[in-house]
Structures are given as C-alpha cells and as structure tokens.
C-alpha cells in the first residue's frame, strides 16, 4: 500500500506541477493492485498465467506444418531472453510495425509452412506469453524512431483522441486521472509491461490487442480488431510509454 501511495503521490504531484503528463515516470499496474493480487502474481505456482507459459513451452517443441518446431531454429525458449522487450517493432519484410503475436504467426507461415494461429487463440497467446516470460525483469525498450516513427505518431494520436459514446480518450483517464478512483478501483497508467496478462475479470489470458478491444468497449466505442494495424500501432505507443519498466509476464491484473 505504501508503494501505491508513493506512486499516486508522485503522479498527483506531476499533475499539480503542470509538468507535461508524459513526463510522469512510468508506474507498473502492479503497484495499483491489492496486496492479495500482487501475491498471486509473485507466486510462480499459484499464478494462473504460468499455465499458459507452460502450454507455450509444449507448443514450442511441437513440430508443425513441414515438421519443424520453434525449438529447431531457436533452441530452448531461454534463448529468447530480451526478444520480447523490442516488440512491436518494424518488420522489413512486412513493411510495417508488427506485434510479437504477428511475428510468431509469420514464423509459422514462412518457416513452418503451417496455418497461422487466430490472433486471440489460446495457442498464440501461450507462445507469446512464453517468449515474453523469458524477458521477465528486463526493461521494455521499443524503438519509436526510424521507420517506426509514423506508426508511433498514429498510435499517440489514437491514444489522445476522444471516442465512443462516453467520448473519452485513453489519456483522459490513464494520464489525467491516474490514482483517482473509478468506482472502487484506482486508475492505473494503463501500462502494458505485464502482457500477456491473466485478467481476473476474464478468468483468462489476454494479449494487448484483447485489452485494447475491451477498453474500447468500456467507453462504448467500436472495438479495434485484435491484430489490426491500428491496434498494433497503439500497442507500440503504449509500450513506449512504459519504456524502462521491467517486464512482468505473466502478470495478474483485475
């Protein structure tokens, strides 16, 4: 609770000091959780997200399509340490910014000659949880310059645009009202350093794409399709807001 109080105080001070909101230091959603939920995330056995990480480990070794598995090219999943910190990133072959989920599917289609997984399928979220889990503790560091710059700008514009029947932009809550309460729950910065997360509301694992669609729905806007280019570019912007925060996958959130 003390950490939460500090985080809240820091963000309120930033708002009061009329500093540009983006310069508030990033605070992980973990700091806004109840101690019980934090304990659930910290316990590697009780954390339900580990079920998906383990399932991802099984899929990693499983031959697909032309008989190759992820393991054949990449070796053990541990070799993926650090990879998750960079996504979404610019893909030269695709000519656009792609998410980690799309990178997994690209590998599947091109190197394994197998059908890509559905964007919100259990298989894809498990593999992406497995890869992100390898980078647990490493700081997020997505590139927002170079070829990704225009995607970053579009993501930022989306984040700051009011939408939906409630006419709210992401930033109206997650920048302007951090630490305030929305009914019983403190508003976090909307950081995505723990994704894919086990969300208690869903009783399921979800990617950033699923969360964005849920948030859209919450302000009664048309949900962005998971894996759509706009959703990926928004994910790039969200991750850039948390650059420097340690990756927590699989995080547990409300």
């Amino acid at each position: 609770m003390k950490r939460l109080a500090l985080a809240v105080a820091a963000s309120l001070a930033a708002i009061a000091g009329s500093a540009p909101a983006q310069e508030t230091p990033p605070v992980s959603g973990y700091q806004f959780l109840l101690p019980e939920t934090q304990a659930l995330q910290d316990d590697d056995f009780a954390n339900p997200g580990m079920l998906w990480v383990e399932l991802g480990g099984k899929l990693w070794d499983e031959p697909a399509g032309n008989g190759t598995s992820c393991q054949n090219c990449h070796g053990a999943p541990e070799a993926m340490r650090g990879v998750g910190t960079r996504y979404p990133q610019w893909s030269q072959t695709e000519g656009r910014v792609i998410s980690l989920e799309q990178q997994v599917n690209q590998c599947r289609a091109e190197r394994q000659q197998a059908d890509p997984f559905g964007y919100s399928s259990q298989e894809l979220v498990s593999l992406s949880a497995l890869v992100m889990h390898q980078s647990r503790g490493l700081p997020m560091s997505v590139a927002t310059d170079g070829p990704a710059a225009s995607a970053y700008r579009r993501g930022k514009a989306y984040y700051e645009t009011r939408r939906g029947q409630l006419n709210l932009a992401c930033s109206n809550c997650h920048v302007d009202q951090v630490g305030s309460r929305l009914r019983g729950e403190p508003i976090s910065q909307g950081q995505v350093n723990g994704f894919p997360i086990y969300r208690q509301l869903w009783q399921d694992m979800g990617s950033v794409g699923r969360m964005i669609a849920w948030c859209n729905d919450a302000v009664r806007a048309e949900p962005l399709a998971e894996g759509s280019q706009m959703a990926v570019e928004l994910e790039l912007y969200l991750r850039s807001l948390g650059n420097g925060l340690a990756i927590e996958t699989p995080a547990v959130r409300r």
Binding site: F45, A46, P48, L51, W52, L55, Q203, D204
Partner: peptide, 9 residues
C-alpha cells in the same frame, strides 16, 4: 501438495 488444472469452469 499443490495442483492446478487449466479449465474455463
């Protein structure tokens, strides 16, 4: 002893 199963319930 701890045991968990992946199930939507």
């Amino acid at each position: 002893i701890r045991a968990m199963i992946m199930h939507p319930m």
